[in-house]
Simulated assay, not measured.
Amino acid sequence: MKNYYKINEISNLYNIGKDSLRYYEEIGILSPERDTNGYRLYSIQDIWKLNIIKDLRNLNMPMEVIKDYLENKTVENTLDILNEEITIINKKMEQLKVQKNTILSRMKSLKEDAQEKNIENITEVEIPERKVIMLNDGFSRDEEADFLIKKLHKKHEDKLYLLGNNYVGVTMSLSKINEKVYNAYTSVFFILDSEDKNYDRILPKGKYLTLSYRGGYEKTGHFLPLMLDYARERGYRVMADPIELYRIDVHETSSAEEFLTELQMLVESN
């Protein structure tokens, strides 16, 4: 077994960038020697330190904690660091449990949505209030919607999982719809779990006219006038910008034929 290893060997063995190795040297964790050509030579002592660093960094433990531990290593300190590892692992397990339940919930709703039979029929439904995180920003093209959805997701990525059970939706300008413009959107949003406390808006409860369809989003422009006619014929007044809810979209399938979009209008009797 060799007593010393060059930086290329260490970098490849541990999949650690050379810049990181130099940083560890800079802050005093590693102390490689130099050969006659000035190349760094890492000792067995450096290697066991790297083993510890790699394990603790995999748990996102701060470098200052790792450095302090390596400089003051005792049985008591080792027990402390192991307890810290257990705490971090338990937290990760809880996060994974939440993520697993989120995925299972989305799988259930996705199967139900894929088998939805009530297509292209207007239905009156009482919907409870829904907690959402929303980004208000006017736009008019599907590509812009995708960008804003990603922007919203980036802002709240700590609590959103794009393949999770968060339905994505947009609101459409009612005034523009009345002018027969059907692609003027006013916001994008994610619907959160009813128990979530980290929301910034609420979609109001009430009676909604709903209609689901499969296929490309251009169909929205066909069905919205039908829903407005339905509301007028029954003496309803539309109370808010209609909603376009993406129950199955590009995040689940590349086939537009499998898309499932639900239009929703909050209404009240005149």
Rank of each mutant, 00 (worst) to 15 (best):
I47Q: 02
L135H: 09
V132T: 14
K108C: 00
K91M: 01
E33C: 06
D142Y: 15
A114Y: 05
K100L: 11
Y14M: 03
D19S: 12
M107V: 06
Y39G: 06
M63C: 00
L82T: 09
I66P: 02
F147V: 14
N12C: 01
I53G: 06
I16C: 03
L30I: 02
T78K: 08
L110R: 12
Y69K: 02
E129Y: 15
S31C: 05
K150S: 14
N72A: 08
L79V: 10
L59P: 07
N90M: 08
L110T: 14
M61E: 03
L148P: 04
N58F: 03
L41T: 12
D142H: 14
P32K: 10
N72H: 11
G17L: 01
V75S: 10
S43E: 07
D55M: 11
D19M: 10
L13Y: 15
S11K: 15
N121M: 05
S20M: 15
Q95E: 14
N37C: 01
L104R: 13
S109W: 04
D137I: 04
Y14D: 01
K151W: 09
S140L: 00
E94C: 03
S105M: 11
I53S: 02
V65Y: 11
N58D: 13
L30W: 06
R22F: 05
K67D: 06
I127H: 07
L82H: 03
E126Y: 07
T36C: 07
L79F: 11
N101Q: 13
H153P: 05
R57A: 07
M134K: 13
V125T: 06
L70V: 00
S140W: 06
T102C: 02
P62L: 06
L82D: 00
Y42A: 09
E85Y: 05
M61V: 11
Y42R: 13
G38H: 02
G28L: 03
